[in-house]
Design a protein around this nucleic acid. Structure first.
Length: 427
DNA sequence: TCTGGGGTCCTAGGACCC
DNA sequence: TCTGGGGTCCTAGGACCC
């Protein structure tokens, strides 16, 4: 087996029930209770405590479909992204200190390269203890010779309580590894989604062990190159490196569903201005310029009886830009063309694409340098103010107190860590 | 008789992830 | 009443060029 030859030891560390655990850390009376966190607009369940899981609440389930008897004994929260981002930073910093190299893979997951570290079991235990002591959150650690194997090991660490949240796939003989992988459905493999699982199962490839021993060339013909790499990684042949510095985004999107249906153009414009402001700020933060913009609006697809209209337009910008005022001008003009009265709009958004680095960009022959510089200065000032007073402090064209399009967030917890007005009270 | 064919760029859409 | 948002990569197919 290839894994035996490979000397790499990659760990995947992730926080258990991350969003739900963040809420519990700051309100210990929630411990041992069913806790869920909802998506934007309080729509779907995106995080569950262990008790919520055993109560039968499913991931991504619309909250209104959860049985009332279960709802009643569940503590429910709107997503408090400021809190989760802050807790994430703390965890990632701790993990970074405990490994020679780290890839922050998502808000609650990190790959660590632990190759060559003696007594891996003790090191992994130490990781869990330090995160627990310093943040109050608990983690699982999966170790394997490739990222895909580390992910699988993490799955075992989560599912099998006898391992205490730590599982090193490479500690086991080939025979015992196969025994483990035979018990895991193929859909649990990183990169095998719902559709691919269905097709594989129909071919008789039901478990991870089945996929590991399948013919990669044949699968490539049927499914494409991605699955060929998955099979290689399962066999210990690394196809994916640790990415220590996140590559710049290739597109930046900002969109939201509205709390209530929106019918009038002026509310849509107001929402679009907010989306452009958010996207442009992200664009500037990563030091990029956008040369293509996509604007889209749509009605509620779940409301089958209502008239449906879903449309978007992708336009080439006259030059690569990062300035909110100019981007907003194009977005609003596009929106005016797309808008048709008589529909109940549910969602809108903007997507900045074709991003290029800002440095050494030659501005177009026909751009007015003075105008570009003034716009730069304005955007920079806006970023500074919003940095200091919160993202909503300064926006374009906001009609104070009349946000008919804003999200439902009726169950937001306090911003314990990021807002000095909401500091936790000591008792 | 036989009516090109290979390369490149772009876009839309599928599939996946958290 | 109430159904998330923000990303990535790959592929197929059309347009275009010589």
């Amino acid at each position: 087996m290839g894994s035996a030859a490979s000397s790499k030891r990659i760990a995947l560390v992730d926080v258990n029930n991350f969003y739900a655990s963040c809420e519990t850390v700051f309100d210990p009376t929630l411990r041992g209770r069913s806790v869920v966190v909802l998506s934007n607009n309080d729509g779907c369940v995106v995080a569950r405590s262990a008790e919520a899981k055993s109560a039968g609440i499913k991931m991504a389930q619309p909250w209104h479909q959860v049985a009332p008897s279960i709802q009643r004994r569940t503590q429910v929260f709107s997503s408090n992204y400021a809190l989760y981002a802050d807790m994430s930073n703390r965890v990632m910093t701790i993990l970074g200190d405990l490994a020679p190299s780290q890839e922050v893979y998502s808000i609650d997951e990190s790959f660590l390269d632990l190759t060559g570290i003696p007594n891996l079991a003790r090191h992994a235990t130490g990781i869990g203890q330090r995160v627990g002591q310093w943040t109050g959150l608990s983690v699982c650690v999966g170790i394997g010779s490739t990222k895909t194997r580390a992910k699988l090991a993490n799955y075992v660490a989560k599912k099998a309580p006898e391992y205490d949240g730590i599982f090193n796939l490479e500690d086991w003989t080939d025979h015992d590894q196969t025994a483990v992988l035979t018990r895991i459905p193929v859909g649990e493999v990183w990169g095998i989604g719902f559709r691919t699982q269905r097709r594989l199962t129909a071919m008789g490839i039901r478990t991870v062990a089945d996929l590991q021993s399948a013919d990669p060339k044949h699968l490539r013909q049927l499914f494409g190159v991605v699955i060929e790499r998955v099979v290689a990684e399962l066999n210990g042949d690394a196809c994916m490196d640790l990415e220590q510095a996140p590559p710049p985004k290739k597109q930046i999107r900002s969109s939201r569903s509205f709390g209530k249906p929106v019918t009038d153009l002026s509310s849509l414009k107001e929402a679009m201005l907010a989306f452009v402001s958010i996207a442009a700020e992200k664009l500037r933060r990563q030091g990029s310029l956008a040369s293509t913009m996509q604007v889209f609006i749509c009605t509620n697809v779940f409301k089958a009886e209502a008239p449906q209209y879903s449309t978007g337009y992708t336009l080439k910008l006259p030059y690569a830009m990062d300035d909110t005022v100019m981007l907003a001008r194009f977005a609003i003009r596009t929106l005016e063309h797309l808008y048709k009265p008589g529909f109940e709009y549910k969602k809108a958004g903007v997507n900045l694409m074709n991003l290029t680095p800002r440095e050494n960009t030659q501005f177009g022959l026909f751009t007015n340098d003075d105008a570009v510089q003034r716009a730069d200065k304005l955007s920079g000032t806006m970023d500074a103010i919003n940095q200091r007073f919160g993202r909503e402090a300064l926006c374009l064209g906001r009609l104070a107190g009349k946000r008919r399009w804003s999200m439902n967030q009726s169950r937001l917890s306090r911003s314990y860590t990021t807002n000095s007005k909401e500091l936790i009270l000591a008792r």
